[in-house]
Design a protein around this nucleic acid. Structure first.
Length: 530
DNA sequence: AAAAAAC
């Protein structure tokens, strides 16, 4: 079997690999490193968890070993879809380039330009970036990409999902024609195929088996859930989630909970914390500093439960997660594979438990069709119906259905002291859930009752019924325009000119047609008078 | 329908 030592890597790189404890390359590494070292273009079709990152960092470090960076002209460029992923690639470089003198800069949004600019000015060998921030630097004239000898596109299919492909094409155009390109994607969508045909020249194609095609080492299950009432859906679902977590007991050492919406990420994280679980949220609306802090904490084991949007579904390397909970069925079936691929890595055992409400059943079908398996149905661990006595009023006050964004963003430092350390604190918490529900069952039911159901047959896809066109809607602009002056009381707009406009508007109110409420047509003064 | 990424 091929060993790293058999590959033609720089001895300094080999030393770092050995120190990191690796001997044998993964299939993608064994396949991609030799052609990359020969200077060939590489098209790698592989998912995360396959050792993809090192398959380009190791040859890059070797190839860049000679030569030195010039100011503002990086010699290589790695593009990643998310900030976390870029940061992870940067860490990988740190690990394997530690015996070399190579320099790098990480260009991602959410942090100040200043340090990034300073590094670029000095000259870097490796630039690792998200597309938006990279182009931002370029447009400010701080960066020349004409010196790029090696360009890497990581997670190209995700770039496609996120609408980055035009940016990627533009960046390709800014780099020299003679560059070497290493291109990675988990799938080969037609659009990806087009890009590779355009920008890669005679690439060596390496395809490795999907890493976590819902591997056998991942125990999967889904709980069908229906809220007792629409307005209790959120809180009942969160209560079910807690029962599911509790039922896993000690075996759940750490977990990622995926939600489809950022709002739910906030709500779930907040609710779990309130009930004494060690949980933190991560999604794209949070400060970069908090995202980084949370992820570091989770990696270090200080945070046990990461509540995440799909920002964390792909690519993020979080070693040894015992459990993945899907609070929602992902609406893109392939995201299910990515999400549960966060557990059961490197042959370890993992559990993936999902909640499915009636609205999500269609998505569940899609997921089961994709993984070509029926996901075992699980019982609600307590089997109990949601307590009917739970008053919605108290609920609203306690649970806060709507997360207050400003609060969660500017979280104070003192939260660390305030946070209960573990769940045992929850037991002692006085009003954890003031349900008068009969607490008959003390033992969690054994879960994983598997009812293999007949596989859902592929249905003819999505009939697209043309929507009956509604009444032609007049543009909203003109209606809001005159309102602005009076509603905001903008000083500049006061005076004769504005008054004339108000008078004119009495006749021709544009924008709401027949349905204009009478008061809209009145002047501000008239409204106050009435 | 939503998430991610640029100020």
């Amino acid at each position: 079997m091929t060993q790293f030592n058999d590959l033609n890597l720089d001895p300094k790189v080999l030393k770092a690999i050995a120190e990191a404890g690796y001997e044998t390359p993964t299939p993608i590494q064994a396949g991609a490193i030799p052609p990359a070292l020969e200077g060939r273009d590489v098209l790698g079709i592989a998912q995360t968890g396959t050792g993809k990152t090192a398959s380009f960092t190791l040859p890059m470090i070797t190839l860049l070993g000679r030569g030195r960076a010039r100011a503002r002209m990086p010699r290589s460029l790695v593009l990643c879809p998310t900030r976390e992923l870029a940061a992870q690639v940067a860490e990988n470089f740190d690990t394997y380039a530690k015996h070399t003198k190579l320099t790098k800069a990480l260009l991602i949004g959410g942090v100040s330009f200043k340090e990034q600019d300073a590094l670029i000015d000095k000259g870097v060998d490796v630039l690792i970036a998200t597309p938006g921030r990279l182009l931002d630097h370029f447009e400010r004239g701080k960066l020349l990409l004409t010196g790029v000898q090696i360009m890497v596109v990581d997670e190209a299919d995700r770039m496609l999902d996120m609408g980055f492909i035009p940016d990627i094409e533009r960046i390709f155009g800014l780099t020299p024609f003679t560059r070497q390109t290493l291109f990675f994607s988990a799938t080969m969508a037609p659009e990806i195929e087009r890009i590779t045909n355009t920008f890669l020249s005679n690439p060596e194609k390496i395809e490795v088996a999907r890493a976590a095609t819902t591997g056998e080492n991942i125990k999967q299950g889904v709980v069908m859930f229906r809220a007792s009432r629409k307005d209790r859906e959120g809180s009942e679902k969160r209560a079910l989630l807690r029962r599911l977590i509790d039922a896993e007991g000690e075996s759940c050492t750490n977990a990622i909970i995926f939600c489809n919406r950022k709002m739910d990420v906030d709500a779930v994280a907040k609710s779990l914390k309130k009930h004494g679980y060690n949980a933190e949220p991560i999604h794209g609306d949070l400060d970069q500093s908090q995202r980084t802090r949370t992820l570091d904490g989770f990696r270090a084991g200080e945070v046990k439960i990461l509540v995440a949007s799909d920002v964390a579904a792909r690519g993020l390397d979080v070693p040894a997660v015992s459990h993945v909970f899907n609070f929602d069925v992902p609406s893109h079936a392939e995201d299910y594979v990515h999400r549960i691929g966060r557990t059961g890595r490197a042959g370890r055992k993992g559990s993936a438990i999902m909640i499915c409400n009636p609205r999500d059943e269609k998505n569940l079908e899609d997921v089961e069709r994709l993984v070509q398996n029926t996901i075992p149905r699980l019982e609600d661990p307590k089997g109990a119906k949601p307590a009917p006595a739970e008053a919605p009023v108290a609920e609203a006050a306690n649970e806060e259905e709507r997360p207050r964004r400003t609060r969660s963003r500017t979280r104070s430092r003192s939260r660390d002291e305030a946070r209960p350390e573990d769940k045992s604190a929850a037991a002692a918490e006085p009003k954890a859930e003031a349900k008068p529900a009969p607490k008959a069952e003390t033992k969690p039911q054994p879960k994983a009752e598997t009812k293999p159901e007949p596989k859902a047959e592929a249905k003819p896809e999505a009939k697209t019924e043309p929507k009956p066109e509604a009444e032609p809607k007049p543009a909203a602009e003109p209606a809001s325009e005159p309102k602005r002056g009076e509603a905001r009381g903008n000083d500049r707009n006061r005076g004769g000119r504005d008054r004339r406009r108000n008078e004119a508007r009495d006749e021709d109110v544009v924008g709401m047609g027949e349905d204009t409420p009478a008061f809209i047509a009145k002047s501000f003064e008239e409204r106050r008078a009435s």
